[in-house]
Design a protein around this nucleic acid. Structure first.
Length: 112
DNA sequence: GGGGTGACGCGTC
DNA sequence: CGACGCGCCACCC
């Protein structure tokens, strides 16, 4: 049995975030199993072992703001990546009303 | 095993 | 969603 670390669960959830959509730390934590892992999620992405497959730039805090400690490329890199995917940012803040990842998105994706 | 840390969340002011 | 503080859980030394 693979004793999936909390980290791995988190990574799987983050990996499932569709392009052009963002999720909050709390949401990722909830999908991973527990809401209180919000902090752990942050830490998990901090040690992000595979940025190539883990779109940590699609994870923002509950206010839709990008992480200030963004350190895998350089300051505004995250913003550029999000905009490149069609996510509009207002002063480094994402409009969660429009871009927050929801189950409905999963349905739409399957419908496509 | 103990202590410190952190890319957070929420209540409260 | 201005600022402050506590809690929460996992990871590293």
């Amino acid at each position: 049995m693979e004793k999936e670390s909390t980290f791995e669960k988190i990574y799987e959830v983050v990996r499932q975030i569709p392009k052009g959509r963002v999720a909050t730390y709390g949401q990722v934590a909830a999908l991973a199993g527990n809401r209180r892992w919000a902090r752990v999620v942050g830490y998990a992405l901090h040690v992000n072992p595979d940025p190539g497959h883990i779109p940590c730039h699609r994870v923002v805090n509950r206010l839709g703001e990008v992480s200030s400690a963004f350190a895998f490329g350089g300051g505004n890199r995250q913003i550029e990546l999000l905009e490149a995917e069609g996510v509009s940012l207002a002063d480094g803040v994402v409009d969660l009303k429009k871009y927050q990842w929801t189950r409905r998105d999963l349905a739409e994706l399957e419908r496509m």
